[in-house]
Nucleic acid binder design. Structure first.
Lengths: 164, 164
DNA sequence: TTACTTGCAAATTATTTGCAATAAT
DNA sequence: ATTATTGCAAATAATTTGCAAGTAA
C-alpha cells in the first residue's frame, strides 16, 4: 500500500486552487474529485482507470471532464504524463516526484521505478554537445519480470509482432 | 544527405526475402516497395509519410498494406518502432542500428541521435537489482533545439498544455 | 447575471480488421 | 488451382471538441 500521504494530497489541492485562481478558472467539485482520485491511486494510472474509480462515487463524472481536468493538472505540474506503450498515456501524481525512470514488464504491464544519477549526467552532456535545452528525460527499460504473479506467456507464446 | 547505403538496402531485401520464405509468406511487389521506401528515408519516418511517398509511384499502395508490411518488417527486425510523442509511432530502419538514443525537439519535431555507453551499464545494473530480463532500453530526451530553422514559438507561445 | 464548465455525442487520429476481388505459388 | 494478399470501408481505441444545459462567481 503506497498511496500518497495526506500531506501530498493537501498540498496538491492547494496548488490546484491557486492555479485555478490565477488563471481565472472555476473551482468545480468535478475538478477536485479528479485530483483526489489521481492522488489516491498507487503508482501510475490511466484516464480510464480514473474514470472507473470516479464512477463508483455518488456524483459521477464524464470522460470529457476527466481528460479536461488531467490537462489542467498537467498545465500546473501536478501530474506527469508518460507514454510507455503504444496504447494510451499513463498519469503519475508529481508531488512525490523525484527524478526517476521506469522499468516496464511487457507481459504483465507492471511498472517499476528506479533512479540512477548517471542519467542526469548524460542529459547534461548531451545538452551541451548538441546545444539543446533539455526539459525532460525518460529512460524506459522494457523486458520481462520474473515474478510468479506475472502473467507471462510460458512457452507457446505467439511470437510478439508475428504477421496478422 | 544520410540515406542508407545501397548495401543496407540490398541486405535488407535479402533478409526480408528469406524471412518471407521461411514463414511461407508471399513475395509481393507491395512488400518490397514498402521496404525500399523505408530504407530510402532519412532518419525516422511514420506510416503516413511512407504512404505519401509510395503514392507518388505509378503502382500505388493502400495504407492497410503499409501497416501490414511494417508489422512484417518489425517481426524480422528490419525496422524498429519508436513512440516519441503521444501521436503515432516512428519507424527507423534497423540495419544501420547501433545502440543509440534520441533527442527530440518539442518545437520542430526534429529527432537527433546520440550514444552513451553509460546507458548499457545502467541497464545491466537495473536488470540485476530488479531481477528483470531487459530486452529494450530507450532514453528519450525532450527539449528545444537552437537551430534557426526550428519553428520554435518565439515569445507569445501559448503555454504548451494550457487549458482548452 | 455572466460566461466558464459539464456531459453527451459526434469528430479526430492512428491503426487494425472483415471481406470480396486479385494475384503469388 | 489454392490460398495468401490487397484495398476498400468499416471497426477500434484514445482523446478532443461542439454545443446546449447547468452552475460558479
Amino acid at each position: 500500500m503506497r498511496s500518497h500521504p495526506a500531506s501530498h494530497r493537501e498540498e496538491a489541492k492547494e496548488r490546484f486552487q491557486s492555479y485555478l485562481r490565477q488563471q481565472g478558472l472555476r473551482q468545480t467539485p468535478e475538478r477536485f474529485q479528479v485530483l483526489d482520485a489521481l492522488y489516491a491511486m498507487d503508482g501510475h494510472t490511466d484516464a480510464d482507470a480514473l474514470y472507473d474509480r470516479l464512477q463508483q462515487q455518488e456524483r459521477t463524472i464524464s470522460r470529457a471532464t476527466v481528460y479536461n481536468t488531467l490537462n489542467l493538472l498537467l498545465a500546473c505540474d501536478l501530474v506527469v504524463r508518460h507514454q510507455f506503450g503504444e496504447h494510451g498515456a499513463k498519469y503519475e501524481p508529481s508531488l512525490r516526484y523525484r527524478q526517476h525512470d521506469h522499468l516496464i514488464c511487457l507481459d504483465c504491464q507492471e511498472v517499476l521505478e528506479f533512479c540512477d544519477p548517471r542519467i542526469q549526467r548524460i542529459q547534461d552532456l548531451v545538452a551541451e554537445v548538441y546545444h539543446f535545452e533539455i526539459t525532460r528525460a525518460a529512460l524506459n527499460l522494457y523486458g520481462h519480470c520474473r515474478r510468479d504473479r506475472c502473467t507471462r506467456r510460458p512457452l507457446a507464446s505467439p511470437a510478439p509482432g508475428s504477421p496478422a
